[in-house]
Deep mutational scan, measured.
Amino acid sequence: HIECVVCGDKSSGKHYGQFTCEGCKSFFKRSVRRNLTYTCRANRNCPIDQHHRNQCQYCRLKKCLKVGMRREAVQRG
């Protein structure tokens, strides 16, 4: 199976330009649609994997963008 490029979980297909799991797909869509801004409580390099992906939204969104998920691919409302 193909892994989610963000957290390594099982990918459910290509979403917003990259293969991601449902969790990262939904997180990215929600973040972009609502134009959410997050803050990192650590050093902005938190581990984002299957077990830690919900611990830091700032670093999760940063990783989504770093691996090539595209904001412009998210349809507005």
Rank of each mutant, 00 (worst) to 15 (best):
F19L: 07
S12W: 02
C7A: 02
K66W: 08
H1I: 09
Y16V: 07
V6L: 00
S31Q: 12
H51N: 14
K29A: 09
H52Y: 06
K10S: 07
C46I: 05
E22Y: 04
E3F: 07
G68A: 02
Q55R: 09
Q75H: 15
G77W: 06
S11T: 10
E72S: 05
D49A: 08
C7T: 00
Y38R: 02
V67E: 11
R41Y: 13
R70Q: 14
L36R: 09
K10L: 05
A42C: 03
N45C: 06
T39C: 05
H1A: 09
C56P: 00
C24A: 01
G8N: 10
G8V: 01
F27T: 00
S12G: 12
M69T: 02
K63H: 08
F28M: 03
Q55H: 11
V5I: 15
S31G: 03
V74S: 06
G68D: 02
A73Q: 13
F19A: 08
R44L: 09
A42E: 13
R41F: 06
S12K: 06
Q57H: 12
D9W: 07
F28W: 09
K62P: 03
N54Y: 08
V6P: 02
K25T: 11
R53A: 12
N45T: 14
E22G: 13
C46E: 06
G8C: 06
T37W: 14
Y58T: 01
R76H: 13
L61V: 03
V6D: 01
R70H: 11
M69F: 03
Q18E: 14
Q50V: 08
S12I: 10
Q55N: 09
V74K: 05
N54Q: 08
S26Q: 15
Y38S: 01
H1M: 15
V6C: 06
R60L: 15
N43P: 05
Y58N: 03
C46P: 03
K66E: 12
K25H: 15
K29W: 07
Q18A: 13
T39E: 15
S26D: 05
K63P: 02
Q50R: 08
C21I: 00
S26M: 15
C56N: 04
C21V: 00
R34M: 11
I2Y: 15
T39R: 08
K14L: 14
S31L: 03
R34V: 07
C24M: 00
R76Q: 13
K62M: 11
C4W: 00
Y58P: 03
F27S: 01
G68S: 03
V32Y: 09
G8L: 12
F28G: 00
K10F: 10
V67K: 07
E22K: 10
C40I: 03
R44W: 09
T39I: 10
F28C: 01
H52T: 09
N54S: 10
H15G: 08
G13K: 09
L61K: 01
I2Q: 02
Q55C: 11
Q50I: 14
F28Q: 01
C46F: 03
S26Y: 04
Q18K: 10
Q57F: 10
L36Q: 08
R60I: 06
Y38I: 06
F19N: 12
C56A: 03
S12F: 08
T20I: 15
G17V: 04
K63Y: 05
Y38A: 04
R33Y: 03
G68N: 06
I48F: 08
G8K: 14
H1S: 05
S12Y: 03
Y16G: 07
C21S: 01
Q75T: 12
K14V: 14
G17I: 03
K25I: 12
N45S: 13
R34T: 05
D9K: 08
T37K: 14
Y38E: 06
N54G: 07
V74H: 08
P47D: 05
K14G: 05
E3D: 11
H51D: 10
G77C: 08
V74M: 06
S11R: 04
V74Q: 09
R33G: 10
N45Y: 03
R41W: 14
R60K: 11
K14D: 15
T20L: 08
N35V: 08
E72P: 04
T37F: 08
G17M: 02
Y38F: 08
N45P: 11
S11V: 04
E3M: 09
E22D: 10
A42I: 01
A42L: 11
D49L: 08
K62F: 06
F19V: 05
T39W: 12
Q50L: 09
V74T: 08
E22H: 03
E3W: 05
K14N: 12
P47T: 07
V6T: 01
Y58W: 10
K66Y: 10
V32E: 09
C24S: 00
V5Y: 15
C59G: 01
A42R: 08
C4E: 00
H52F: 09
H51W: 11
S11N: 07
V32M: 13
V6N: 00
Y16K: 06
K10D: 14
P47I: 07
M69R: 01
N43H: 05
Y58H: 12
A42N: 04
C64Y: 03
R60C: 11
K29F: 07
G8T: 06
C46M: 02
R60A: 08
R34K: 15
Q75L: 11
C40T: 03
C7W: 01
C59A: 02
C24Q: 00
G17F: 03
Q50M: 08
K66Q: 12
C46L: 03
R71Q: 12
E22T: 12
I2T: 06
G8D: 15
I2L: 06
